[in-house]
């Protein structure tokens, strides 16, 4: 268990993704361990997010809290599960050297970054959930927090991919220089990566974000509207963007 948290720590510090560490074209972390860590962090954030239901009119809503605790890790893992096959296939098609297991580790590591940021913002979200009655404010705050962590996680993914490809293209000459330059996990590299691989990953990022948002919409309610009774899932209606837009309108009027 301790080893898994150390894996996450080395990913966050960037020590797992230094050019020397990526020698075999693979990130030296355990995907299974990261899966467990991601699930725990997701559950923690779910718990913080579900705090809103505690102060509902007509008594605390523990079911909503439980549902959110389960749903947040589900959201990330299901999105990964749905988008992984297409990424792998296109990645292989354009001739990238990343194998299935290294690709999975790379994605797990970037989800690890996303969830670490997400859960670190959890206490703030829990505090605001506990003392806010406005449902729309909570929706927008959560969307903001998810966007920040998603953005950082996906930038990590692109940076690490860049480093992996640098190694594959130019293995040794600039290694020491690189070592000195890449102190953090998000520090940019100078050398461009292969155009096709980059395009595939960029497209995948868009698909991943869209699927993630839609998945969040299917799995809703996460926060639980105070005026509506608790249900595990809601009927199909509207879509993610329209709902966020409505919340912005509701908050500013």
């Amino acid at each position: 268990m301790k080893k898994w948290w150390q894996d996450l720590d080395s990913v966050l510090r960037g020590s797992a993704t230094t050019p020397a560490g990526l020698e075999n074209g693979d990130i030296p972390v355990s995907a299974r361990g990261l899966l467990v860590v991601i699930t725990i962090l997701g559950m923690f954030y779910g718990l913080c997010m579900g705090c809103y239901g505690l102060l509902k009119v007509g008594g605390p809503n523990y079911w909503q809290m439980l549902a959110t605790t389960i749903k947040v890790p589900m959201l990330f893992l299901l999105t990964l599960f749905i988008t992984f096959p297409s990424l792998y296939v296109f990645n292989a098609l354009v001739g990238s050297r990343l194998h299935a297991h290294s690709l999975l580790r790379l994605l797990m590591a970037s989800l690890g970054v996303t969830l670490a940021v997400l859960s670190s913002l959890g206490p703030i979200v829990a505090f605001f959930s506990a003392c806010t009655t406005s449902y729309h404010f909570m929706i927008l705050l959560n969307v903001l927090v998810f966007s920040i962590s998603g953005f950082l996680g996906l930038s990590f993914l692109l940076q690490t991919l860049q480093r992996l490809t640098i190694y594959n293209v130019a293995p040794s000459a600039t290694e020491d220089e690189n070592e000195a330059k890449f102190k953090g996990a998000l520090d940019p590299t100078l050398r461009p990566i292969h155009f096709r691989v980059k395009t595939v990953f960029r497209c995948w990022l868009v698909v991943f974000s869209l699927v993630g948002m839609q998945m969040a919409w299917i799995l809703r309610p996460f926060i639980g509207a105070p005026s509506r009774p608790f249900t595990w899932f809601r009927d199909r209606e509207s879509n993610f963007f329209e709902a966020v837009f409505q919340s912005i309108l509701a908050l500013f009027s």
């Binding site: 960037g14 940021v117 206490p123 703030i124 990590f156 890449f182 996990a185």
Partner: peptide, 17 residues
């Protein structure tokens, strides 16, 4: 203490641990 966890993670991610 509410702001510290996220600041810690952001520092780590920036390579400034």
């Amino acid at each position: 203490f509410l702001s510290l966890p996220s600041y810690f993670i952001l520092n780590t991610l920036a390579g400034l641990r």
